[in-house]
Design a protein around this nucleic acid. Structure first.
Lengths: 339, 339
DNA sequence: TTGTATGCGTTATCAA
DNA sequence: TTGATAACGCATACAA
């Protein structure tokens, strides 16, 4: 049916071993150039295409990588995946994507499955990966890089946006618009972004001479619109006065829109809102969301380079890359009304 | 390092062949129950996990499927992929997703790659797949199902939304609002959806007693926002009067928003707009888009069932499934102003 | 019910 | 520079 190396060898009148060497760029120098040509020609004629499964069995390398994400349906992840794939494809790798729904059990199974399929490395973009699972991975020397998350306690490389810089830009922007009392919808404190952005918020407010008020911070359980809505409602119901809010991510910010609509408040005239991530489509919502742009495609691409690097040279010490982020001013922020 | 069947067999004091049979649910009845237990226990103790690569080489089945899509970054596709994955995962399959960017050459390479990796079947969601490539697939008896696309000339199963019903609902909705002159931004006529929706538009207009005017139809080269914008501008620059437009998909509809904003026209008071697909986030744009909801997750899930079916029973005659779609009325349509 | 032997397609080691 | 041979881990036809 489909041609094998054997067939090619026979057609070219050489031994399969020779054919193998001739077909492989890495070993072709071990064989006479004329023979190489002959084999290649025969291969082409027969439509030979190497069987990666057999190769993988022999070499223990599958030419494939894993990508563990919460949910491909979350618009944050497709660009990351795409950046990852584009880069690893250059090196001949395929990608197995797997959705965990942030469920630890699912995640454990998925990772086991990926390993069973002999992936040579993986990126992990789930916020909730069990430290234990991660530890196991590094203990087994599986090249893994964290995405959108850092893990200071483990020697694991990571790629993420620069949260501190992002919050700094957001705060500076609001300050320049005259806002003094700024609230923060903090992300889940089980996630490294949630923690980092809250910490940066506190830091930047004081650094930039604005007063940090604990009462203006609400912790959200999850990065979901509903949580953002509830959080802002809680703030609105409270006694504190504030004219702007920095949400830990865009979904939370969109939740603010919902809360405001319910109460007939208008954004940005009643309240300025800043998001984080610059998800696709937040430029299309009303009002277009002012947010921190994270270069997700680049995040995936950079993660890919690091994984590839570590496959080639497992001994390399893990590096953490912080990609620059930038404030995108759109319609959801405006000058504070003097009062 | 990692336990193999051999190790398990040795630990259980049986022959590897027996261990193999004991581990496999399909053959475990061929072996003494007590032995099965013993082998299983040893396997667990050793943390044995079968090597799918070796199995695949032996059985010619890879337990993996392919998904050929234009671009995971297009919000249309993640739900499809997710539906597909969720269903095939139940059957123990993995999914290899590949982006073609609607580039025929890329696509050819990707499909070849998928086949080299021994996928047992695939879904194809690219609009532009070469008939030739498709023909080759069916000739080689690769279980393939088309998604979001039908191919009447080939015996290939497909899953898609019911375009005719969608357009019918859109037209009925606009008619009920008093619109008489309705324009259509047609999708690329190289795609089956583009063709079907245009044909349905023409049909429904006359069926429902509205006049079909060729001058109110603009063909878009691609399903992109920019094309929708250009198309509406062309219409606006022309002499024809119209009060509503049905776009062949949501992106085109969003393009209409752009064109109108540029000209200080207001939607829906100046012009009602209906999209198609109900992409994520079109409920968040301004005004929220009235559109035809296509159950994309279900499309992927149904495609999965059909692929699985065909792997089990390759002889089955190909079926085409049209999933019901429904009009979602939001803010971009309103009553026609009497004039 | 279990053991034996062989082969899937490739690469790697060794010898020629 | 090439050939011979074995082996990767598993499944299966056949024998016992």
């Amino acid at each position: 049916m489909v041609a094998t190396l054997r067939d090619v060898a026979r057609a070219a009148g050489v031994h399969p071993g020779t054919a193998s060497r001739a077909m492989n760029p890495e070993t072709e120098q071990l064989v006479n150039h004329a023979t190489v040509m002959r084999v290649r020609k025969a291969a082409k004629a027969l439509g030979y295409v190497p069987n990666p499964v057999a190769r993988s069995l022999k070499t223990n390398r599958s030419q494939s990588l894993g990508a563990v994400i919460p949910d491909i349906t979350n618009p944050l992840f497709p660009p990351i995946i795409r950046g990852f794939e584009d880069v690893v494809a250059e090196a001949g790798y395929n990608v197995l994507v797997t959705n965990t729904d942030n469920d630890a059990i699912r995640e454990g199974r998925q990772i086991a499955e990926l390993r069973a399929r002999q992936v040579e490395g993986m990126i992990v973009a789930t916020a909730t990966i069990e430290d234990e699972a991660l530890r196991q991975l590094v203990a087994d020397h599986v090249p893994v890089v964290l995405v959108n998350r850092v893990e200071p306690n483990l020697a694991v490389p990571s790629v993420a946006g620069d949260d501190v810089s992002g919050i700094r830009q957001a705060v500076a922007h609001l300050k320049s618009l005259g806002h003094r009392r700024v609230a923060h919808l903090a992300g889940p404190q089980t996630t490294s972004t949630g923690i980092a952005r809250l910490r940066a918020f506190r830091q930047e407010l004081t650094d930039q001479g604005l007063e940090f008020d604990e009462a203006l911070v609400v912790l959200c359980d999850q990065y979901r619109e509903a949580d953002g809505k509830a959080a802002l409602e809680q703030l609105l119901d409270g006694p504190e006065v504030f004219s702007a809010v920095i949400a830990a991510n865009d979904l939370l910010a969109l939740g603010c829109y919902d809360a405001m609509k319910d109460r007939n408040l208008s954004c940005p005239s009643d309240l300025s809102v800043v998001g984080f991530n610059d998800m696709p489509f937040v430029d299309k919502v009303h009002p277009p969301l002012t947010t921190i742009h994270v270069p997700h495609y680049e995040v995936g691409a950079e993660a890919a380079r690091i994984v590839l690097e570590r496959i080639k040279d497992p001994g390399k010490s893990p590096i953490s890359v912080l990609l620059p982020v930038s404030l995108i001013v759109r319609g959801s922020t405006t000058a504070a009304t003097r009062s």
